[in-house]
Protein backbone atom coordinates (compact mmCIF):
# COMPACT_ATOMS: atom_id res chain seq x y z
CA UNK A 1 0.00 0.00 0.00
CA UNK A 2 1.55 3.29 -1.13
CA UNK A 3 0.30 6.43 0.60
CA UNK A 4 1.00 9.58 -1.44
CA UNK A 5 1.53 12.65 0.72
CA UNK A 6 1.83 16.28 -0.45
CA UNK A 7 3.40 19.08 1.54
CA UNK A 8 4.17 22.74 1.05
CA UNK A 9 7.43 22.31 2.99
CA UNK A 10 10.39 22.25 0.60
CA UNK A 11 12.65 19.22 0.30
CA UNK A 12 15.58 19.47 2.67
CA UNK A 13 13.62 21.45 5.26
CA UNK A 14 13.42 20.01 8.77
CA UNK A 15 9.76 19.12 8.20
CA UNK A 16 10.48 17.05 5.12
CA UNK A 17 13.46 15.38 6.79
CA UNK A 18 11.21 14.31 9.67
CA UNK A 19 8.47 13.17 7.26
CA UNK A 20 10.89 11.02 5.30
CA UNK A 21 12.42 9.54 8.44
CA UNK A 22 8.93 8.57 9.68
CA UNK A 23 8.15 7.10 6.26
CA UNK A 24 11.31 4.97 6.38
CA UNK A 25 10.51 3.71 9.88
CA UNK A 26 6.96 2.81 8.86
CA UNK A 27 8.20 0.93 5.79
CA UNK A 28 10.67 -0.96 7.95
CA UNK A 29 8.20 -1.81 10.70
CA UNK A 30 5.49 -2.98 8.26
CA UNK A 31 7.91 -4.95 6.04
CA UNK A 32 7.19 -2.46 3.23
CA UNK A 33 3.47 -3.22 3.33
CA UNK A 34 2.90 0.50 3.92
CA UNK A 35 5.09 2.96 2.06
CA UNK A 36 4.85 6.72 2.21
CA UNK A 37 5.67 8.66 -0.94
CA UNK A 38 6.23 12.41 -0.54
CA UNK A 39 5.63 15.31 -2.89
CA UNK A 40 7.34 18.29 -1.19
CA UNK A 41 7.68 21.96 -2.06
CA UNK A 42 4.07 22.50 -3.06
CA UNK A 43 4.56 20.69 -6.38
CA UNK A 44 1.04 19.29 -6.15
CA UNK A 45 -0.42 22.78 -5.75
CA UNK A 46 -1.84 24.71 -2.82
CA UNK A 47 -3.97 23.16 -0.06
CA UNK A 48 -7.15 23.45 -2.15
CA UNK A 49 -5.58 21.61 -5.09
CA UNK A 50 -4.20 18.95 -2.75
CA UNK A 51 -7.65 18.39 -1.23
CA UNK A 52 -9.18 18.04 -4.70
CA UNK A 53 -6.54 15.47 -5.60
CA UNK A 54 -7.23 13.60 -2.37
CA UNK A 55 -10.91 13.47 -3.35
CA UNK A 56 -10.15 11.84 -6.71
CA UNK A 57 -7.55 9.53 -5.14
CA UNK A 58 -4.39 10.83 -6.84
CA UNK A 59 -3.10 11.78 -3.38
CA UNK A 60 -3.96 10.29 -0.02
CA UNK A 61 -2.83 12.84 2.51
CA UNK A 62 -0.87 15.91 3.38
CA UNK A 63 0.31 18.36 5.98
CA UNK A 64 -2.46 20.90 5.63
CA UNK A 65 -3.22 24.20 7.34
CA UNK A 66 -6.15 24.15 9.74
CA UNK A 67 -8.04 26.66 7.61
CA UNK A 68 -8.30 24.25 4.69
CA UNK A 69 -9.48 21.40 6.94
CA UNK A 70 -12.49 23.19 8.44
CA UNK A 71 -14.76 21.63 5.80
CA UNK A 72 -14.14 18.28 7.51
CA UNK A 73 -14.56 19.61 11.03
CA UNK A 74 -15.71 23.25 11.38
CA UNK A 75 -14.82 23.46 15.08
CA UNK A 76 -11.11 23.48 14.16
CA UNK A 77 -11.59 27.18 13.64
CA UNK A 78 -11.98 27.70 17.40
CA UNK A 79 -8.18 27.81 17.85
CA UNK A 80 -7.83 30.42 15.13
CA UNK A 81 -10.43 32.83 16.47
CA UNK A 82 -8.78 36.24 16.85
CA UNK A 83 -7.25 36.96 20.27
CA UNK A 84 -8.89 33.93 21.86
CA UNK A 85 -5.54 33.08 23.49
CA UNK A 86 -3.36 35.57 25.38
CA UNK A 87 -0.25 33.44 25.72
CA UNK A 88 1.18 29.99 25.05
CA UNK A 89 0.15 28.67 28.49
CA UNK A 90 -3.48 29.17 27.53
CA UNK A 91 -2.80 27.45 24.20
CA UNK A 92 -1.31 24.44 25.96
CA UNK A 93 -4.25 24.15 28.36
CA UNK A 94 -6.78 24.37 25.53
CA UNK A 95 -4.93 21.97 23.27
CA UNK A 96 -4.68 19.37 26.02
CA UNK A 97 -8.45 19.29 26.19
CA UNK A 98 -9.36 19.89 22.56
CA UNK A 99 -6.71 18.21 20.37
CA UNK A 100 -8.21 14.71 20.88
CA UNK A 101 -11.71 16.07 20.19
CA UNK A 102 -10.58 17.73 16.99
CA UNK A 103 -8.79 14.57 15.87
CA UNK A 104 -11.94 12.58 16.44
CA UNK A 105 -14.00 15.21 14.63
CA UNK A 106 -11.70 15.15 11.61
CA UNK A 107 -11.85 11.36 11.45
CA UNK A 108 -15.64 11.44 11.53
CA UNK A 109 -15.44 14.01 8.72
CA UNK A 110 -13.34 11.61 6.62
CA UNK A 111 -9.77 12.57 7.46
CA UNK A 112 -7.55 10.58 9.80
CA UNK A 113 -5.49 13.16 11.70
CA UNK A 114 -2.15 12.46 13.38
CA UNK A 115 -2.22 15.54 15.55
CA UNK A 116 -1.51 19.20 15.20
CA UNK A 117 1.64 21.25 14.84
CA UNK A 118 1.95 24.83 15.93
CA UNK A 119 2.71 27.51 13.37
CA UNK A 120 2.90 30.11 16.13
CA UNK A 121 0.98 33.29 16.76
CA UNK A 122 0.56 35.75 13.95
CA UNK A 123 1.50 39.27 15.05
CA UNK A 124 0.74 42.62 13.46
CA UNK A 125 3.92 43.95 11.86
CA UNK A 126 4.15 47.43 10.41
CA UNK A 127 6.40 50.26 9.36
CA UNK A 128 4.69 52.29 12.10
CA UNK A 129 4.27 51.72 15.81
CA UNK A 130 0.66 50.47 16.20
CA UNK A 131 -0.98 49.92 19.57
CA UNK A 132 -4.71 50.73 19.28
CA UNK A 133 -7.27 49.39 16.80
CA UNK A 134 -7.61 52.95 15.57
CA UNK A 135 -3.89 53.04 14.76
CA UNK A 136 -4.33 50.00 12.56
CA UNK A 137 -7.43 51.42 10.84
CA UNK A 138 -5.27 54.28 9.53
CA UNK A 139 -2.75 51.93 7.93
CA UNK A 140 -2.71 50.04 4.65
CA UNK A 141 -3.32 46.53 5.90
CA UNK A 142 -2.60 43.51 3.72
CA UNK A 143 -4.77 40.39 3.66
CA UNK A 144 -4.29 37.43 1.30
CA UNK A 145 -6.66 37.80 -1.66
CA UNK A 146 -9.50 35.32 -1.69
CA UNK A 147 -9.04 34.52 2.02
CA UNK A 148 -12.54 34.74 3.50
CA UNK A 149 -11.28 34.09 7.03
CA UNK A 150 -8.86 37.03 6.92
CA UNK A 151 -11.50 39.26 5.33
CA UNK A 152 -13.98 38.48 8.12
CA UNK A 153 -11.24 39.00 10.71
CA UNK A 154 -10.34 42.53 9.62
CA UNK A 155 -13.93 43.54 9.05
CA UNK A 156 -14.77 42.54 12.62
CA UNK A 157 -12.26 45.21 13.70
CA UNK A 158 -13.64 47.67 11.12
CA UNK A 159 -10.34 47.72 9.29
CA UNK A 160 -10.45 48.17 5.52
CA UNK A 161 -7.86 45.83 4.03
CA UNK A 162 -5.78 45.73 0.84
CA UNK A 163 -6.18 42.23 -0.61
CA UNK A 164 -3.13 41.14 -2.60
CA UNK A 165 -1.67 37.80 -3.67
CA UNK A 166 1.18 36.57 -1.47
CA UNK A 167 3.70 37.02 -4.29
CA UNK A 168 2.98 40.76 -4.38
CA UNK A 169 3.54 41.43 -0.68
CA UNK A 170 7.29 41.94 -0.54
CA UNK A 171 7.46 44.42 -3.42
CA UNK A 172 4.30 46.15 -2.18
CA UNK A 173 5.84 46.62 1.28
CA UNK A 174 8.88 48.15 -0.38
CA UNK A 175 6.83 50.46 -2.57
CA UNK A 176 4.43 51.50 0.19
CA UNK A 177 1.31 50.03 -1.42
CA UNK A 178 0.84 48.31 1.94
CA UNK A 179 2.60 49.02 5.24
CA UNK A 180 1.05 46.54 7.67
CA UNK A 181 0.93 42.73 7.61
CA UNK A 182 0.13 39.98 10.08
CA UNK A 183 2.26 36.86 10.18
CA UNK A 184 4.15 34.54 12.51
CA UNK A 185 7.80 35.31 13.37
CA UNK A 186 8.94 32.27 11.34
CA UNK A 187 6.86 33.45 8.41
CA UNK A 188 8.23 36.99 8.54
CA UNK A 189 11.80 35.71 8.38
CA UNK A 190 11.14 33.13 5.66
CA UNK A 191 9.33 35.60 3.41
CA UNK A 192 11.92 38.34 4.03
CA UNK A 193 9.24 40.74 5.22
CA UNK A 194 11.26 41.53 8.36
CA UNK A 195 13.50 43.79 6.28
CA UNK A 196 10.53 45.95 5.32
CA UNK A 197 8.77 46.47 8.69
CA UNK A 198 10.00 48.17 11.84
CA UNK A 199 7.46 47.44 14.57
CA UNK A 200 5.72 44.36 15.92
CA UNK A 201 2.59 44.82 18.01
CA UNK A 202 3.12 42.46 20.93
CA UNK A 203 -0.36 40.97 20.85
CA UNK A 204 -0.92 37.32 19.86
CA UNK A 205 -3.48 38.01 17.13
CA UNK A 206 -4.27 34.57 15.68
CA UNK A 207 -3.02 31.07 16.50
CA UNK A 208 -1.80 29.33 13.33
CA UNK A 209 -1.57 25.53 13.17
CA UNK A 210 -1.55 22.60 10.78
CA UNK A 211 -2.48 18.92 10.82
CA UNK A 212 -1.01 15.84 9.21
CA UNK A 213 -3.93 13.95 7.67
CA UNK A 214 -4.57 10.86 5.56
CA UNK A 215 -7.80 10.22 3.70
CA UNK A 216 -9.92 7.74 5.69
CA UNK A 217 -10.75 5.61 2.61
CA UNK A 218 -7.05 5.09 1.87
CA UNK A 219 -6.20 4.56 5.53
CA UNK A 220 -8.86 1.86 5.94
CA UNK A 221 -7.23 -0.21 3.22
CA UNK A 222 -4.29 -0.77 5.56
CA UNK A 223 -4.65 -3.78 7.85
CA UNK A 224 -5.32 -3.00 11.48
CA UNK A 225 -1.93 -3.94 12.91
CA UNK A 226 -0.18 -1.74 10.35
CA UNK A 227 -2.68 1.07 10.98
CA UNK A 228 -1.50 1.10 14.57
CA UNK A 229 2.12 1.40 13.49
CA UNK A 230 1.32 4.23 11.08
CA UNK A 231 -0.67 6.08 13.75
CA UNK A 232 2.10 5.67 16.29
CA UNK A 233 4.95 6.81 14.07
CA UNK A 234 3.18 9.74 12.44
CA UNK A 235 1.69 10.97 15.70
CA UNK A 236 5.08 10.89 17.46
CA UNK A 237 6.76 12.57 14.51
CA UNK A 238 4.19 15.36 14.30
CA UNK A 239 4.32 15.92 18.06
CA UNK A 240 8.09 16.39 17.75
CA UNK A 241 7.58 18.96 14.98
CA UNK A 242 4.97 20.68 17.15
CA UNK A 243 7.55 21.11 19.93
CA UNK A 244 10.32 22.07 17.54
CA UNK A 245 8.16 24.73 15.89
CA UNK A 246 7.55 26.39 19.25
CA UNK A 247 11.32 26.62 19.77
CA UNK A 248 11.79 27.89 16.21
CA UNK A 249 9.24 30.64 16.74
CA UNK A 250 10.86 31.72 19.99
CA UNK A 251 14.26 31.96 18.31
CA UNK A 252 12.62 33.73 15.36
CA UNK A 253 11.34 36.38 17.80
CA UNK A 254 14.90 36.79 19.10
CA UNK A 255 16.18 37.04 15.54
CA UNK A 256 13.60 39.73 14.72
CA UNK A 257 14.67 41.70 17.80
CA UNK A 258 18.32 41.33 16.82
CA UNK A 259 17.47 42.66 13.35
CA UNK A 260 16.27 45.84 15.08
CA UNK A 261 12.50 45.30 15.01
CA UNK A 262 10.77 46.94 18.00
CA UNK A 263 8.11 45.00 19.91
CA UNK A 264 5.53 47.50 21.17
CA UNK A 265 3.06 46.64 23.93
CA UNK A 266 -0.31 48.45 23.90
CA UNK A 267 -1.56 50.35 26.99
CA UNK A 268 -3.95 48.36 29.26
CA UNK A 269 -6.95 50.34 27.98
CA UNK A 270 -6.02 49.61 24.38
CA UNK A 271 -5.47 45.94 25.14
CA UNK A 272 -8.93 45.84 26.73
CA UNK A 273 -10.43 47.31 23.56
CA UNK A 274 -8.67 44.72 21.39
CA UNK A 275 -9.90 41.84 23.50
CA UNK A 276 -13.49 43.02 23.95
CA UNK A 277 -13.89 43.78 20.22
CA UNK A 278 -12.53 40.36 19.31
CA UNK A 279 -14.72 38.59 21.84
CA UNK A 280 -17.86 40.27 20.51
CA UNK A 281 -16.95 39.28 16.96
CA UNK A 282 -16.13 35.72 18.01
CA UNK A 283 -19.43 35.30 19.85
CA UNK A 284 -21.26 36.64 16.80
CA UNK A 285 -19.52 34.11 14.58
CA UNK A 286 -20.36 31.28 16.97
CA UNK A 287 -23.98 32.41 17.16
CA UNK A 288 -24.22 32.25 13.36
CA UNK A 289 -24.21 28.47 13.84
CA UNK A 290 -21.05 27.42 12.04
CA UNK A 291 -19.22 26.53 15.25
CA UNK A 292 -20.51 24.75 18.30
CA UNK A 293 -21.37 27.23 21.04
CA UNK A 294 -20.94 24.57 23.69
CA UNK A 295 -17.35 23.90 22.55
CA UNK A 296 -16.61 27.63 22.38
CA UNK A 297 -17.84 28.23 25.96
CA UNK A 298 -15.76 25.28 27.16
CA UNK A 299 -12.69 26.70 25.47
CA UNK A 300 -13.31 30.09 27.08
CA UNK A 301 -13.65 28.45 30.49
CA UNK A 302 -10.36 26.63 30.07
CA UNK A 303 -8.39 29.68 28.99
CA UNK A 304 -10.05 31.96 31.59
CA UNK A 305 -9.08 29.55 34.34
CA UNK A 306 -5.48 30.22 33.31
CA UNK A 307 -5.77 34.02 33.72
Amino acid sequence: QTIKIASLAPDGSSWMTEFRAAGDTIAKRTDKRVQLKFYPGGVMGDDQAVLRKIKIGQLHGGALTAGSLTEFHPNLQLYSLPLVFRNLDEVDAARKAFDPRFQKGLEEGGMVSFGFAEGGFAYIMSTQSLTTIDDVRKRKVWIPSGDQFAADLVSSFNISPTPLPLSDVLVSLQSGLIDTVATSPIGALALQWHNQVKYVTDLPLVYVFASFVIDKKAFNKINEADQKIVREELTNMFARLDKQNRQDNLSAIDALKKQGLKFVTPEPAAIQEWYSTAEKANQKLVNSGKLSNEAYQQLLNIVRAKR
Partner: peptide
Amino acid sequence: LRNVFHTGIEWSDVFLR
Protein backbone atom coordinates in the same frame (compact mmCIF):
# COMPACT_ATOMS: atom_id res chain seq x y z
CA LEU B 1 -10.94 52.57 -5.58
CA ARG B 2 -7.88 51.89 -3.48
CA ASN B 3 -5.94 55.03 -4.29
CA VAL B 4 -8.81 57.51 -4.37
CA PHE B 5 -11.48 56.09 -2.06
CA HIS B 6 -9.30 53.87 0.18
CA THR B 7 -11.55 50.90 -0.36
CA GLY B 8 -11.67 47.93 -2.69
CA ILE B 9 -13.68 45.07 -4.14
CA GLU B 10 -13.19 42.04 -1.94
CA TRP B 11 -13.64 39.46 -4.71
CA SER B 12 -11.74 41.28 -7.44
CA ASP B 13 -8.58 39.16 -7.36
CA VAL B 14 -10.51 35.88 -7.44
CA PHE B 15 -12.65 37.20 -10.27
CA LEU B 16 -9.60 38.24 -12.28
CA ARG B 17 -7.92 34.87 -11.82
